[in-house]
Each structure stands twice: as C-alpha cells, then as structure tokens.
C-alpha cells in the first residue's frame, strides 16, 4: 500500500483534483446534523478532524431510497439502464467503509445485484479517520480501522494528512494531484501515527460491552425486556433507514395516467413496519412490535454472522441519535447484559 502526505494548507486544492474524476460530495450541515451533498465550491470540502455522522449513510448512493428498476408498456418492458455518474464521497469514516464492504458482500452473495454493483463501481470513497464523539462505539465492533473498500484514506496528523492509497482510482487521483500529494513522508510519521491511534482509542466515551452479545441474543430471546421495548417502539422505521447496513426494500408497480406506461419502483422498506412479514391470506409472521424489534437486533448482532461471517453493526452510532424513544444497539446490549 502506498502512503503519501498532503499538507493542510493544500486541503482546498484537493477539490480541483477530485473534480476531474466526477461529482464531488461532501458532508454539509443540515440543522444540527450533516448530510452528504454535491458541492461546487472548494471551500465546502470538509476534512475536519471531528467525527461527522451524516443523517443518511453512504448507502444512499449505492441503493437510492426510491428508484425505478424498469419501465413497461402493455407490449414490452425496458430495464432502467440510466448512466450513473462517478461520485466521489469525501470524509467517509472507517465504520461506514466497513458498512459498504458489508453491503457489497451482501449484494454479491448467492446472486449479484446489478443495480447495486453498477453504483458501487462508480463510487469513489475518500475515507477519513477522525476522533470519536460521545456516540461512536466502533472500537467495540472492531470497525475503527479499515483496510479495504476505500480509494484514499486520510489521517489527520497535525499540520498534514497521512494519505493511504487503497485502489487504482486512488492512485490515479494522487498522480493527477502530484503537486499537492508528497511522497516524501516526514521522519516522525510513524511515531505521530501511533500517537494519533492512541489518542483516538482513549477518546471513546461510549463503551457498550459487546462481548458475547451474539450468544446472549440467543439466550435472552424470550426475555421480558423485549416486550418493554416493543411497548416503547413507535414503529417509525427511522433506525432501519439510518443504519448503514440495512438493505431491505420493497418493489411495487406504478402506472402513469393514460399513457399505459408504468414503472417498477424499488424503495427502502423497514422490518419495523406492520406489513413487513404479511403473506397472502393476511397471515402475519411478525405481528407484534417486540417480534419485529427482535428480528432487527437478531439480524444486526447475531444472524449476519451465520450468513456472512461478521456482525452487521459497525458502531456508527446513528441509531443512538435517530431513535426518539432510545431503543438502540447500546441500550439493547445493556439490557442483554443485565
């Protein structure tokens, strides 16, 4: 792997380099939070050190909330083959890159989802390691360090960034920006890097005890606290929208007035909605909120290991600052442990 240096004074020049590769998207403030937005102004490029947790994760690029998969008339149908532009997402934290890797694994196992893969191939990820805030718990889910899935990855080491190159496109980018990327690393870089990691590890304030949670999910399956959570849950589905590894979707057909033209739409669904497991004849396999919550947490903390080898919670903390009634991975883990 190649490592280079980018001086902080050249940070804004990065935009003109990235621009040559596609649309540049960077976290932009939205209320008290952030959202990945397309930027035109080099000043909007954000590589600060603080952890920026956008409302919707990177998955919004890879599996849009609502899009057409094919269009049809009574005679024939055409697959949606729209051209996807290259998108460069800046300031993606390590946990989210892990999430993208999980999504990719999910969408290429058994059958390959082309709608996802088409977008994944056109997504350039510029990662960034920042210090955790009070909600981050990626150190507990082993997702604070990432080794693949990014094109470039930035570490903030004081007056410069240490830049890992993780892909061919990443390499192309640093070659295009040869005037700002410096191959000569300072002598103290490894020492500084170790210090940075130490400081990062010390900065975690949220420490849910995730050890053995997988087994506890099984052992505590019939515990009473699930019903308490079920009574509290608003079934708003926000947790599933915000979670970077949630993938469920629904497919429906929409017709257009008069033209006899229709579209088959694919949009995000949530396992927290009542209709999620409803089958013909109105039989609902998961009629209660508690059952649906159990499904979600089983899937996040336990079941995904059985299918894909790792749990699907990456410790990004989105569920913590999304759920209005405080049902999230740390609170569930706390109950599992009590």
């Amino acid at each position: 792997m190649r490592a280079l240096k980018l001086a902080k004074k050249d940070e804004k020049k990065l935009f003109s380099v990235l621009e040559k590769f596609g649309e540049v998207w960077s976290p932009m403030p939205k209320g008290k939070r952030f959202s990945y937005e397309k930027i035109e102004d080099p000043e909007d490029l954000v590589l600060h050190e603080e952890c920026i947790r956008t409302i919707l994760p990177v998955k919004k690029f890879l599996m849009p909330p609502d899009f057409n998969i094919l269009s049809f008339t009574p005679q024939k149908f055409t697959i949606n083959n729209e051209e996807i532009p290259f998108k460069i997402v800046v300031s993606v934290p390590a946990c989210e890159i892990h999430a993208v890797n999980i999504l990719t694994k999910f969408y290429t196992t058994d059958y390959v989802d082309n709608y996802y893969m088409k977008r994944r191939e056109k997504l350039i990820i510029i990662g960034k390691s920042g210090l955790p805030d009070e909600h981050c718990f990626c150190h507990k889910t082993n997702t604070s360090i990432v080794e693949e899935g990014y094109d470039l990855f930035f570490f903030d080491l004081g007056d410069y960034y240490l830049v890992w190159v993780g892909s061919e496109i990443g390499d192309d980018i640093v070659r295009k920006g040869s005037d700002i990327f410096d191959e000569n690393l300072p002598k103290d870089v490894s020492q500084k890097f170790v210090e940075f990691r130490k400081q990062k590890n010390k900065s975690y304030k949220n420490n849910p005890d995730m050890e053995g949670v997988t087994d506890l999910m099984e052992l505590m399956y019939d515990a009473e606290f699930w019903d308490e959570f079920g009574d509290k849950c608003l079934s708003c589905g926000q947790c599933t929208m915000a979670c970077p590894t949630c993938t469920c979707f629904n497919i429906i057909d929409d017709l257009e007035l008069n033209k006899e033209l229709g579209h088959r739409r694919r949009y995000w669904d949530s396992c927290q909605f009542k209709d999620y497991s409803l089958v013909a004849g109105q039989h609902n396999f998961r009629g209660s909120k508690a059952e649906r919550l159990k499904l979600w947490y089983t899937h996040k903390l336990k079941a995904f290991i059985g299918h894909f080898g790792s749990p699907s919670c990456v410790g990004c903390g989105r569920c913590i600052i999304t759920c209005p009634v405080d049902i999230n991975v740390p609170t569930v883990v706390e109950k599992l442990k009590s």
Binding site: I55, K60, L234
Partner: peptide, 29 residues
C-alpha cells in the same frame, strides 16, 4: 394502495433531522 408506513419513512428519504428527537411536538410516527 393503502399506505401502511408512517410519515417518518419519506421524512428519512428526504434526509431530515428527526424533529421528535430534537424535542418538537411531531406526530409523524
């Protein structure tokens, strides 16, 4: 089609902050 999902679904599609979480009297869910 009878919509059986709350306002929150599309609210999240549009990437809004949760108003209820932020302490507003929101009946979305």
């Amino acid at each position: 089609t009878y919509t059986n999902s709350p306002v929150c679904l599309e609210c999240m599609f549009r990437e809004n902050e949760c108003l209820l979480y932020n302490g507003k009297l929101c009946l979305g869910p």
